[in-house]
Design a protein around this nucleic acid. Structure first.
Length: 554
RNA sequence: GCGCCUGUAGUUCAGCUGGAUAGAAUACCGGACUUCGAAUCCGUAGGUCGCAGGUUCGAAUCCUGCCGGGCGCACCA
């Protein structure tokens, strides 16, 4: 909607320039806003104040010129005012909104989609939790945010793929193997020490038990080095399967599972290092191989290959990101837990060393989740084994509430997840408030059918009976859905949709309590039903992009 | 010590690429069901936007300093 207004303003700027009334050597970005107070109209722009200085005119004079041109522009504008220090306020003709409302029903499940992403190829990497234990709530937030971003970018016209990077090599895999082997030996009653840096969680015992069930005492006399590969791989696969299952049951879709091991097998890590060496950003020192990341604002140079000859995690991660870009992605977005933020500068440095534009790569940091139960924080630590798993949370509060709670806050703010609140089926719980609205609208349609009131198609319905204030509040909010999606996608800010829905649905409940949709007036009933249909579509599509269900009955 | 995030109503949070009187939810209090779902609505009240300077027509928003909270600063991943 705002883009329509923006076009009108640009057109009147052109006219003013052609008439010689304005010089317009430079034109700033044209900002169209919805004024906070409705009495200022439907749209406003502060443009006169922004260009007054360069035009050497007073804001009011600029506003006068522009508003004269706007007047002749369109019959869609009901009135134009110049207000305050130099705002232009526009009030639109009711038909401006009504004609756009028809398109909502026409688009149906596609309403909200646009081409603002212009088919840009985006790769979203998210979760990528080390396969050394089950997903916990922190991963859950990353999963929910990443999955929603995928849906959001798709809706906004980006060509998006999602990926999970599996760290299936390195020390932690060995530790996992040793942990499992040690538990296995415990089952066999073989004396051995379970070291403090082993993975403490009970899931390791369960995996060991599974191995014992299938293989009995087959590894009773095996030396560590003989047995470890088997235990490592078994545990890895078992945990990975668990992660996949958790994600599926959380409604999270992942297009590709990318293995770190595969990067090594295909020699992509070596070639990335060699490539950087050719570019003179790699040097040898103290028996190790280093990247000159300080050239690109990292605080110190980083080791790629250790004295031992092993490659660092950073090293293969460079190869991975190079690979992403080689696959043709134009925007590479990573979601990381906030505890990895110190890693951002070195990754940026690595990509710049490889010669890529710094806008190509973007890290979105997802802040921590503080799980609360009856006001008390629940602690999370993989090592101690006292963590709250994602699966447990889903089991307790359900997928819808869990996803909604993860998605209702800005990713870069710390999240208090109140388990008791998420479980409540009362209006304090925001997700129920929205779902209830949807169910309530569906109920109106059921009643309409019972009463034999006809539900007209968008091509047949006469919307003119829609004329009260609350109806227009609703209509205007429905019509901002698409731009909310676009903005949310562009800024990678998922929480905007939750706030939008909360606001939209609040207006609905308020409307509902003041006006009857169904009455003896057929024309009025049809028009209002149509409005309800558009609203239902918007709520459903909004919840869908969050991955939350829109129940017809509750 | 250095770096990143953060500080807005009792609480949880929006608003942050500068705009008009700083918003919502929740809690508290007071109202509203013969009529489409009261899982709802309406109303009252609640604020030195952490503090202090600066930039300008205009600052919660940008800059600087300070204070408080979270998280990082590995030849771990």
């Amino acid at each position: 909607m705002k883009s329509v207004i923006r076009k009108l303003i640009i057109s009147s700027l052109d006219k003013a320039k052609n008439c010689g009334e304005l010089e317009l050597l430079t034109i700033p970005e044209i900002v169209v806003e919805k004024p906070k107070d409705d009495k200022f109209g439907d749209f406003s722009t502060s443009l006169p104040m922004m260009i007054a200085k360069s035009e050497k005119m007073k804001p009011h004079e600029v506003a006068k010129i522009l508003s004269n041109h706007l007047k002749s522009e369109e019959n869609q504008i009901a009135s134009i005012d110049i207000a305050g220090p130099g705002f232009i306020n526009l009030k639109m003709d009711p038909n401006f909104f009504l004609s756009r409302l028809s398109r909502v029903a026409e688009q149906g499940n596609q309403y909200g989609s646009s081409n603002s992403g212009k088919g840009k190829k985006v790769l979203l990497e998210f979760v990528s939790a080390n396969p050394t234990g089950p997903l916990h709530v922190g991963h859950g937030r990353g999963a929910a945010v990443g999955d929603m971003l995928g849906r959001l970018l798709l809706l906004a016209g980006y060509d998006v793929s999602t990926e999970y990077y599996i760290n299936d090599v390195g020390n932690q895999m060995n530790t996992l193997g040793r942990s499992t082997l040690s538990r296995y030996r415990e089952i066999l009653g073989v004396k051995n020490e379970f070291l403090s840096d082993y993975y403490q969680g009970d899931y390791v015992k369960e995996i060991a038990k599974e191995i014992h069930d299938k293989h009995g005492n087959e590894f009773l006399d095996s030396e560590d080095e003989q047995a470890l590969p088997f235990f490592r791989n078994y545990a890895l696969n078992s945990i990975l399967e668990g992660i996949k299952t958790d994600l599926v049951s959380f409604g999270v879709k992942c297009d590709r599972w990318f293995s770190e091991k595969q990067l090594y097998d295909e020699k992509l890590v070596d070639s990335a290092v060699n490539w950087l060496r050719e570019k003179k950003y790699v040097y040898d020192s103290e028996g190790a191989v280093w990247l000159k990341s300080t050239v690109f604002k990292d605080e110190k140079d980083r080791v790629l290959i250790k004295q031992s000859g092993e490659k660092t995690y950073f090293c293969s991660d460079i190869a991975y990101h190079k690979n992403k870009i080689d696959r043709g992605f134009e925007w590479v977005v990573d979601l990381w837990g906030a505890d990895h933020h110190g890693y951002v500068p070195r990754m940026n440095a690595a990509l710049q060393a490889m010669g890529y534009d710094e806008n190509l790569f973007k890290v979105l940091l997802v802040q921590f989740v503080a799980l609360k139960r009856e006001g008390k924080k629940v602690s999370m630590s993989t090592r101690s084994g006292e963590f709250e798993t994602l699966a447990d949370v889903i089991k307790e509060v359900g997928v819808d509430a869990a996803r909604y709670f993860f998605l209702m806050r800005s990713s870069d703010s710390h999240l208090d997840f109140d388990l008791e609140l998420a479980k409540k089926e009362t209006p304090e719980n925001p997700v129920f408030y929205i779902q209830y609205a949807h169910a309530r609208i569906c109920s109106i349609f059921r009643t309409a059918v019972e009463q034999g009131i006809s539900i007209l198609d968008y091509t047949d319905v006469d919307l003119r009976p829609l004329n009260n204030e609350e109806e227009f509040v609703l209509i205007k909010k429905i019509l901002t859905f698409t731009e909310t999606v676009e903005k949310s996608a562009e800024l990678l800010e998922v929480h905007r949709i939750a706030f939008y829905l909360q606001d939209l649905v609040g207006s609905f409940h308020s409307y509902y309590s003041r006006h009857r949709v169904l009455s003896s007036d057929q024309c009025l009933s049809s028009a209002r039903l149509f409005l309800m249909d558009c609203l239902r579509i918007t709520i459903r599509n909004g919840l869908a992009v969050m991955g939350v269900s829109a129940p017809e009955k509750m």
